[in-house]
Design a protein around this nucleic acid. Structure first.
Lengths: 354, 354
DNA sequence: TTGAAAGCGTTACCAA
DNA sequence: TTGGTAACGCTTTCAA
């Protein structure tokens, strides 16, 4: 190992070429297609590179190639553990493929989201993974951006304008709802994230299950923040005829709902059952623990990254919609003891299927 | 609003110049020093920019300027809510200043950290905010990198080779320890993060407090992960003479410790008191809630970003070490009832100061 | 106040 | 297999 020689500026490909007695073209080739250069020359060039501590100038490379080996990840709330896990999985794969990752936080703000998409275009990103706001899922058109897009967690309901990785939202919400109904709950209120397609789909699944059981849906649409969930849940619990179950469409709202129940001094599940999406760490800490629909977060992130890599390799491939299943984890917050508690009121016939 | 005209490639400054009947120089000036261009011409240029939907090519700009308006944030564990909060604060300020932010996750791995620092050099970043591994805090030298560095959460103990934003670690750990001692705890075991200067400093504060109280420190050094904390705590609790208090130097280890106590079926604080760093959300959920030293995370992130901006504006300024204070939040996991429980054994005289 | 032209470091074309 | 050279799009002298 030789020390890098001192340089006023960091060495360029020209310096390497001079020192190796070769042309810049050859140096460039050694960097990108080493097999196209004869071994002895290649080695001389490589040695010059090492001795000078040469590192290619990315700006020059990008200017020339009109493309950066860089991908973007735009999440809607970095503080939501769901997205943190996804970030981690994506970052892991990007790092292993030598791709830079720019992580952006849109904060559920369409303007910020738009600004970050423009940033990605300006940076000539090779691809973007995105959990879009509701506005964007509606506005989004294939080929609208100068890079391929993979949507995670959220997507247009009918069309598939880009690769997608999603939970099976409506059925998952339905399963949660049916579980609560089977436990004897009748007045099940939903705290639904209003900013995303995902919140909407989960709401639809809930409503379908309620209707089939002959029960009346009660939905509160909210920004997906714990504080909002807590306030809304507190209001619901203060009603004369309060809900006997609270269901939340994401982990933050679920946390808020849980806190509201505790603040109200109510017992879970005897007074109010509680359940929701996202198997976050905290859900197993209280006694009783909280029933959740666990999402395969690492899988979602990994799949999205792999989908993006595949599309970068083969841009023409038709977009794929990958739907993953959640896992219902029944815990104390919704499990009545004795297990088979008799329903308070007779069930609507359709509910017996639940 | 006119539609951007169709273009094979995105329009360049040359296209704008032609359309406005001006030179590329003038267009460039309109972009960076508009006041140096006469109003009527400036307006004509601006109109051409708008009509073409022109966006400057960042690669070309960087190649020319040898500098990117982009900063890096390298955290050691993105899943630790402490760093998530910091990321959010930094991202917020970067966004408001029109600076791109690249967020990287070193995973406590010095090799990955090094690789990301090289990435930042390659990207010609204007500055980097970093929570360094222990290895880096030892190796770091001022002026080693082609960009200014601000360290957060961790730092060399004695020197100040860069701007720093830190918690007052040793005193904070001392306060926590003294609190436990005042509650009557005697066999206080510490779960210490071994990978960071911060873990070391907190360990030192704990040891000082223990020694002063005439108590024997018991330290387990660990990688800062919940699973490690849980395993280590379980082992401690299985001992013949088990600890009567568990203290953890970060939020992840604290979570692990808490889980181990519960798994062991022990009562908090009667059998074992539990306390630690980081006022994470989950700490208020269990009954009893968990005593913590709250860190001003948003402040830390904001301060680091502001420090970096200041240094980018004025590179010559001597580095500053900003030390913030934590807030001790005493909760049930360490609060014995009745409040003033008599110590099991007489205290060492020095402890009366606690 | 404006413009011409050089040059940032790289890659890709084409010729040898 | 190798090298000369133009071009990527921008900013920055320098001169007018």
């Amino acid at each position: 190992m030789t020390q890098p020689l001192p340089h006023r500026h960091s060495p360029s490909i020209k310096d390497v070429a001079e020192r190796a007695g070769a042309s810049t073209t050859t140096v460039s080739r050694v960097l990108s297609h080493p097999e196209a250069v004869r071994p002895d020359l290649r080695q001389r060039v490589q040695q010059a590179i090492d001795e000078l501590g040469y590192r290619p100038n990315l700006a020059a490379r990008r200017l020339r190639q009109q493309r950066a080996s860089l991908i973007g990840l735009i999440v809607s709330d970095i503080r939501n553990p769901f997205f943190t896990e996804i970030s981690r999985a994506v970052e892991d794969i990007a790092y292993r493929h030598g791709l830079r990752l720019i992580l952006c936080n849109s904060d559920e703000d369409p303007a910020k989201e738009q600004s970050y998409l423009e940033l990605m275009a300006d940076e000539q990103a090779s691809g973007v993974i995105l959990s879009p706001t509701l506005e964007l899922t509606r506005r989004f058109r294939a080929g609208q951006h100068p890079f391929p897009v993979v949507m995670v967690d959220r997507a247009p309901e009918s069309s598939t304008p880009s690769d997608l990785v999603l939970l099976d939202n409506a059925p998952a919400a339905r399963r949660l709802t049916e579980h609560l109904i089977a436990q004897g709950c009748r007045r099940i209120a939903l705290l639904a994230g209003s900013r995303s397609s995902t919140g909407r789909e989960r709401q639809a699944g809930y409503e379908a299950a309620m209707r089939e059981a002959g029960l009346v849906p009660q939905v509160v649409a909210l920004r997906p923040l714990a504080a909002e969930g807590q306030a809304a849940a507190a209001a619901l619990l203060a009603q004369a005829e309060r809900p006997d179950a609270l269901l939340a469409t994401n982990g933050l709202l679920l946390l808020g709902a849980w806190k509201a129940v505790r603040e109200a001094g109510l017992a879970m599940p005897a007074d109010v059952a509680v359940a929701g999406f996202d198997n976050n760490d905290w859900t197993t800490l209280p006694e009783p623990a909280v029933t959740v629909m666990a999402q395969p977060t690492a899988d979602i992130g990994r799949t999205a990254a792999e989908l993006l890599l595949q599309r970068m390799a083969e841009p023409g491939r038709p977009p794929r919609r990958i739907v993953l299943e959640g896992e219902l984890l029944v815990r104390g917050s919704s499990a009545f003891r004795p297990p088979a508690a008799a329903p308070a009121r007779p069930l609507h016939p359709a509910a017996s299927a639940a």
